[in-house]
């Protein structure tokens, strides 16, 4: 046992399917042309890269929910990292796992899958979070894995309008779970046989379901 080292390291070596956090950091570093602090690999603070200000360059964080590829604008993400310890709170819907201490700040952690109506799984390790923000609101979104950063002009890809039909009727049926997600997708990027859905993070964070906890 002992020669296996600490479990944290094990996770990396034993789960090659997940991109290691260091790789991810490296990617982001490349993008942002800034050196990250090698000492603190638990979370990565995202600073807007100068490239962002250039017109025509839009950057997105790409991630997976089950096998669906999604991305959200880098400008909306403050921080990414390995799923932190989560303290559950009572009287919340199951898709809100609870709150976490992200460097002294309390941030709620949300199971994005649960929010979209996919089955809510018990808190499990190895997932990643993205702290998304809209105005003053910060929410930690738990996703299955983060695969990297997309720069649109690099890809030469074009954003198309969302091809999905959103159902207006709020159907609580299992089959309508896709439509629940569809209503938060603003467009798609098709790229090398992959279809990347762009998540409307503003719409998501402003949605009434998300904001049901702003007041009583």
């Amino acid at each position: 046992m002992v020669q296996q080292g600490l479990p944290l390291d094990d996770m990396k070596s034993n789960t090659p399917k997940m991109p290691s956090l260091d790789e991810l950091i490296a990617t982001i570093d490349q993008e942002t042309e800034q050196s990250a602090d090698a000492e603190a690999p638990e979370t990565v603070k995202i600073k807007p890269s100068p490239a962002l200000n250039k017109p025509g360059t839009r950057q997105y964080i790409e991630f997976f929910l089950n096998n669906i590829v999604l991305c959200l604008p880098l400008a909306n993400a403050l921080e990414i990292g390995r799923q932190p310890a989560i303290t559950p709170l009572p009287n919340l819907p199951p898709w809100i796992y609870g709150v976490s201490n992200i460097r002294g700040e309390i941030v709620s952690m949300i199971d994005l899958k649960g929010f979209f109506g996919m089955p809510v799984l018990p808190i499990q390790s190895g997932r990643r979070f993205i702290i998304a923000c809209h105005q003053n609101m910060k929410v930690g979104l738990l996703v299955d894995r983060i695969t990297g950063i997309l720069s649109l002009n690099q890809l030469g890809a074009i954003i198309q309008a969302s091809p999905y039909q959103s159902e207006n009727s709020e159907n609580t049926d299992e089959t309508s779970q896709m439509s629940r997600m569809v209503s938060f997708i603003t467009g798609v990027i098709s790229n090398r046989e992959k279809l990347i859905n762009i998540l409307d993070i503003d719409g998501l964070l402003m949605s009434p379901r998300m904001n049901a906890f702003q007041t009583e």
């Binding site: 709170l89 009287n91 709150v99 941030v107 906890f213 009583e216």
Partner: peptide
């Protein structure tokens, strides 16, 4: 006492959290 964050302004039965 700290607040429950910018998202969960109000959680029934919880007056805040502490670190």
């Amino acid at each position: 006492i700290k607040s429950t964050g910018s998202h969960l302004r109000y959680v029934k039965g919880i007056s805040g959290v502490t670190i």
